[in-house]
Design a protein around this nucleic acid. Structure first.
Length: 497
RNA sequence: GGUCGGAUGGCCGAGUGGCUAGGCAGGGCUCUGCAAAAGCCCGUACAGCGGUUCGAAUCCGCUUCCGACCUCCA
């Protein structure tokens, strides 16, 4: 049931059956953040999407080495060589050391990702920790004649490279068109062609982050760290490389070029790209004022936010769309996600408490049983089809209906077999918690206190003290819980509003 | 201009050549002291125009519109 995972490979533009190079091992690399400011909601998408892929691959039995880098050398701002390093700029603004900036925002990145239940990768390498390796690979590319030194910097020679390997194979670009369409920017005189990109850049005197190299003091180019850190830990050719669509060109294109220039081998077998998040239909940008950080989302402190949203709400919101579609961020969408998420959590609590008791006399409901088994299989079918979490979640809700049905009418539970029930229970909980990574967000209540209050509620109802009943209901409500009165007794669940 | 991807019911969001996706919102019913929760039922959507087909929202072509990237960006 679970050995036919298909993934959409940007390189071939089609869905391909995933077969690792060296099973059961899988190497996966995802472009991580540049740690110069707080992570925004756009950063959450690849983190969550590839986290689910990571979890699912592990569930399928693969031994996954997941590498996600931290970029702690600032890339240049602006369009020219005179642009400022963004980490250095932030350091100047906050009057801190660059490494202080890097450390602070790495910590904050970890904090929010932990809240989103994004698992830490197996290795989280930093660019500054791999300067030597970066220098080595630049030298290698120079030795292979596919780079040149100019004014203390080293540039990748696109034209020469293109004679041996097609440049633009990932993004579907043609080199002649690129040349025709490239604007002539200032400060590019050092390059032979405007398409050439820096492998190593000479540091200007005021540049803070600098290292000694065979070509003088400088710092690594924009794309080389990913080439170095992916191939160092995963091998010259590895299985999966993920990242946002916006990185496809030029970043990932350059990664391919660098790796091939150095080793003559294609670095990546499956290229995966997640689509962007828009805000109320518009691109997120600082200038539009709709730039929302994850921290702001969680506190609700942003003009466009009508309320705060919990980490699991955001995670669920992301997973309710397919990763290759754009996802529009709206208050209504988030509110819908919040309700849907809680609905699933309530079903999770329900089924975990549910006990099967066989009843020989019960009439078997084979139709229902077949449907349940089919739905369980559909959960995996969804993920197998290019990680279609949206489809799987749809089936999850169908199962929620089944679970709630059993809860409402316990006698119907014995109409299915014990094994089917166990399968429902196990698969549902594993799928929700371990694969989708959706866990309960408990209010700061203790189960004991809840039980005591429910007891009082039951007593108040018995003596028809409705004033007290209403008070207790309100108390629960203000704590994000609701009291459920069912024929089987009194229970609580998460308030979906 | 180039490359790529979209257009699905009030909103979001899947999908297959013919058989109910799903969530949210809305309406009705059951249950209830009243509610809530839960269950059941309801709206018959697929941009437009052609074509292929017994049959297309699903395949092909054209048109219109939208978005991303082409400059740092997840």
């Amino acid at each position: 049931m679970t050995n036919s995972l298909k993934l959409y490979n940007t390189l071939t533009r089609q869905k391909e059956t995933f077969e690792p190079l060296n099973p059961p091992f899988v190497g996966m690399y995802v472009c991580g953040p540049t740690v110069y400011n707080d992570a925004h909601i756009g950063n959450a998408r690849p983190a969550v999407v590839f986290d689910v892929l990571y979890r699912y691959l592990q569930f399928l039995g693969y031994k996954v080495r997941y590498v996600r880098n931290i970029t702690d050398v600032g890339h240049l701002l602006g369009e020219t060589n005179e642009g400022e390093d963004r980490i250095a700029k932030q350091a100047r603004l906050e009057q801190l050391e660059p490494m202080e900036i890097v450390y602070r925002y790495t910590q904050r990145y970890h904090e929010v990702m932990d809240k989103l239940q994004v698992k830490r990768p197996s290795i989280e390498p930093t660019a500054t920790g791999h300067i030597v390796e970066q220098i080595n690979i630049v030298q290698q590319i120079l030795d292979n004649g596919l780079a040149y030194i100019s004014e203390g910097s080293v540039y990748f020679d696109i034209e020469k490279y293109n004679q041996k390997h097609p440049y633009g194979e990932l993004s579907g670009r043609v080199i002649d068109e690129l040349i025709n369409n490239t604007r002539n920017l200032d400060g590019q005189d050092a390059k032979k062609s405007p398409l050439d990109f820096a492998l190593w850049k000479k540091a200007q005197p005021e540049h803070l982050m600098r290292w000694q190299s065979p070509w003088g003091e400088g710092f690594p180019g924009w794309h080389i760290e990913c080439t170095v850190m992916s191939t160092k830990y995963l091998g010259e050719t590895f299985d999966i490389h993920g990242g946002g669509m916006d990185l496809m060109f030029p970043h990932h294109e350059c990664e391919i070029a660098q790796a091939k220039a150095a080793t003559n081998k294609p670095p990546v077998r499956y290229w995966l790209h997640n689509n962007m998040i828009t805000i109320n239909g518009e691109k997120m940008s600082k200038s539009a004022g709709n730039f929302v950080t994850i921290a702001e989302l969680l506190t609700g402190e942003h003009p466009i936010l009508e309320q705060s949203y919990s980490p699991m709400t955001m995670r669920f919101f992301i997973l309710q769309a397919h990763y290759r579609s754009t996802l529009d961020f709206t208050n209504f969408g988030l509110q819908s996600a919040q309700k849907g998420y809680k609905k699933i959590m309530n079903a999770l609590r329900t089924i975990e408490k549910m006990e099967y008791s066989p009843d020989e006399k019960a009439e078997k409901d084979e139709k229902n049983e077949t449907q349940i088994l089919q739905l369980l299989e559909n959960l995996y079918k969804g993920l197998n089809d290019d990680l279609n979490t949206a489809l799987s979640i749809g089936h999850l809700f169908n199962l929620v209906k089944k679970i709630n049905g059993f809860y409402a009418q316990p006698q119907t539970l014995s109409q299915i077999s014990a094994t089917t029930f166990e399968q429902l229970k196990n698969t549902f909980t594993i799928f929700v918690r371990d694969i989708l990574g959706l866990i309960e967000e408990r209010p700061d209540n203790q189960e004991g206190l809840i039980q005591v209050l429910l007891q009082e509620y039951a007593e108040a109802k018995n003596v028809k003290n409705y004033e007290k009943v209403d008070t207790l209901r309100n108390y629960f409500k203000t704590n994000g819980l609701i009291i459920k009165d069912t024929k089987q007794g009194i229970d609580w669940s998460y308030d979906e509003n």
